[in-house]
Write a protein that binds this DNA or RNA. Structure first.
Lengths: 152, 152
DNA sequence: CGGAAGATGACACCTTGGTTGTCATGAGTG
DNA sequence: CACTCATGACAACCAAGGTGTCATCTTCCG
């Protein structure tokens, strides 16, 4: 499979090169819409993690998103200061409390999420589920193999 | 296709959410290796564009990578100061010269590229060309639909 | 041909995503 | 009990990337 391996490698570099522009444009899009709720990109990321995983601790979130613990901490504190999340006692660790969405936080992230979802629905158009599944598989693979580069 | 449309949308948000971590980890990886050649992420991006598209102008590169003209300009000047690129007269615009890789620039970006390629080859493993093609299609689609958010 | 509108480059400033380092405290463990 | 490790707070720092302004050069249209 050395030839097909090379072809695959070539295509993979293309994928790689698409991620940068995509990330920047997406971020710009997010922060273009976000002012409505007043969420920074970082806060949005925290709220979104809590939305899908339920309450979790700061270090957990950092690992999950490949972000430094300290950065997540700041964003979390920021979100807490705005009343979007609250600290609830963690049965497993007294010191490290669980972070949970408040009503306001839930509302804010839901609004953002729905807006983004509407946009994606338009884009989705003629893409098939199979294609997207393949895409997910490829990206996950890339991600997991870059994991060894860890932070904090 | 309203149900499948929704499912597609759901999966698309997953794709969306993978891009962030991927970008960060990739960037960390790049700047972990880059010191060898002394390239910043921005300079690397410029050299890479020149490597695949051949000589081009600064504004062209900015549009291509969804980066502001000014940022690309700075990176280009930086690269020129290090002797990695040179300005050649542009037949089409007297003022806006074409940027071209020098020998040194060619060597540097090739070294980086080969190193990254070797890494991707390992990762590629059991991914099929079809999967990667699908992935490319999905990402391109996302990218092109975010294009309306322009900069500068 | 002439002048207005647009594209390019230079320069300076700024925002902010994200990391690193240090320290104190609390938690798990031999 | 002592030791190590994880967490949180605080501060400093870095770099990616954008914005704003101005002068010069193109282009295009009357």
């Amino acid at each position: 499979m050395s030839e097909s391996g090379d072809a695959v490698t070539d295509r993979l570099t293309e994928v790689f090169d698409l991620v940068g522009p995509l990330y920047r444009r997406a971020q710009r899009k997010v922060e273009l819409d976000a002012p409505i709720e007043g969420l920074s990109v970082g806060v949005r990321a925290v709220l979104n993690m809590l939305r899908e995983h339920g309450p979790m601790t700061v270090p957990q979130m950092g690992r999950d998103q490949a972000l430094s613990r300290q950065f997540v901490q700041r964003m979390t504190n920021d979100a807490a200061a705005r009343g979007l999340v609250e600290f609830v006692p963690n049965p497993a660790h007294r010191r490290s409390s669980l972070i949970r969405l408040t009503e306001a936080g839930q509302a804010a992230i839901t609004a953002v999420f729905d807006r983004e979802r509407a946009m994606l629905r338009q884009i989705g158009g003629d893409l098939t589920e199979a294609e997207i599944a393949a895409c997910l598989r490829v990206l996950s693979r890339l991600l997991s193999h870059l994991d060894d580069v860890d932070v904090d």
